[in-house]
Design a protein around this nucleic acid. Structure first.
Lengths: 186, 186
DNA sequence: CGCATGGTGTGAACGATGTCAACATTGTCC
DNA sequence: GGACAATGTTGACATCGTTCACACCATGCG
């Protein structure tokens, strides 16, 4: 918008604007399509400007993944706080739907590239998100850690397989229905 | 090895050598660390030489992923042909162990970057690998497609979570034992 | 045998990218 | 008002994937 010549020298809210624009580009183009130069141009700023707010491209990606985990945790807590019939199934469904609705962001959250960098912020955000899940799971169902891990694995695997198109939905077969059926056994 | 000056102008088995070296680099450095120039140098050839055998870097990665799926399918068929106590559990365990032993290759097989390119060879290799699984599953256990998908999701999710270090093993708690316990319910 | 042909490797170059250093501009605080 | 730090710009560098013109060499055809 501020492509006009009357654009001020200082952007004012660059960091926030960068994150917002990056989330949009990420959702549309995927992580590989998110270049620092394109991002800078999208916000109307010079190619090197982002470096005042992010040490590197990886740091920018980390910030995105962190907000992803925060949004994820918020959704999960929302469900955990509510009172659905089968809370366990509701959480699983939310887990999978979040992955499908925020496909590229979800992939970024679990990106091996980022993991390899061992960024503490990402690890903390992920742990925080999963801790709320773990807390609820440990409290509600006392079948022990193994069952909890098994449920997590099932839900996460379903999310990933759907995301990658490995599991294809037959026409007229609702995605939510399939999820519900698979999640059924806790 | 052929860094000596007596290296012939033509390599002779470049394509095969490239794939072998690429698999080694991939296992050690991950997909991001697999550069065409490094790869060419590792094989003792000029940076542009690989392009005589692979249209692009993506094509090279596709070839790697395809061999990954082939190895995976071979391992699975081996188990399916054998006669273990609980064949279903044995296959699940093999699935997860393959992922852990070939971490970076496994990640490449399910890489969203490659999926985005819609390479037919990759899709065919993946379908072939999963078809053998599906065939066995459909035959052995008649609980229907939903149960089969649920089992697949659970095993795949466990593999991915272990791979990403989201599930951490307590000391002295054997990885295989944990896998066996989680797989237990089909 | 000689020689054209096509497959294979080389070398130099292009465009794009992440990143950095030097400089310009601005807001803030004594 | 003037120093100072924060923020944005400009230009450059190294590296990467990729391409193109050329060098080499095996093969088969006359």
């Amino acid at each position: 918008m501020s492509t006009l010549s009357n654009a001020p020298y200082h952007h004012g809210t660059l960091r926030q604007s960068l994150l917002e624009a990056a989330l949009i580009i990420l959702a549309r183009e995927g992580e590989a399509g998110l270049g620092l130069r394109d991002l800078a141009r999208a916000v109307g700023v010079s190619p090197a400007a982002p470096y005042r707010h992010f040490d590197s491209r990886a740091a920018l990606l980390e910030a995105l993944a962190v907000t992803g985990f925060q949004r994820f945790a918020a959704r999960m807590e929302e469900v955990a706080a509510g009172d659905p019939e089968d809370k366990m199934a509701a959480m699983g469904k939310t887990y999978v739907l979040f992955a499908l609705e925020n496909a590229n962001l979800f992939r970024l959250m679990f990106s091996p590239q980022l993991k390899r960098e061992n960024r503490p912020g990402l690890r903390m955000a992920a742990d925080a998100a999963f801790d709320t899940m773990r807390h609820f799971i440990d409290g509600d169902m006392e079948k022990g850690r193994i069952q909890a891990l098994a449920a997590w694995a099932k839900v996460h695997g379903l999310a990933v397989l759907l995301l990658d198109g490995q599991i294809t939905i037959r026409p007229r077969e609702d995605t939510e229905a399939l999820i519900a059926q698979i999640i059924a056994g806790l």
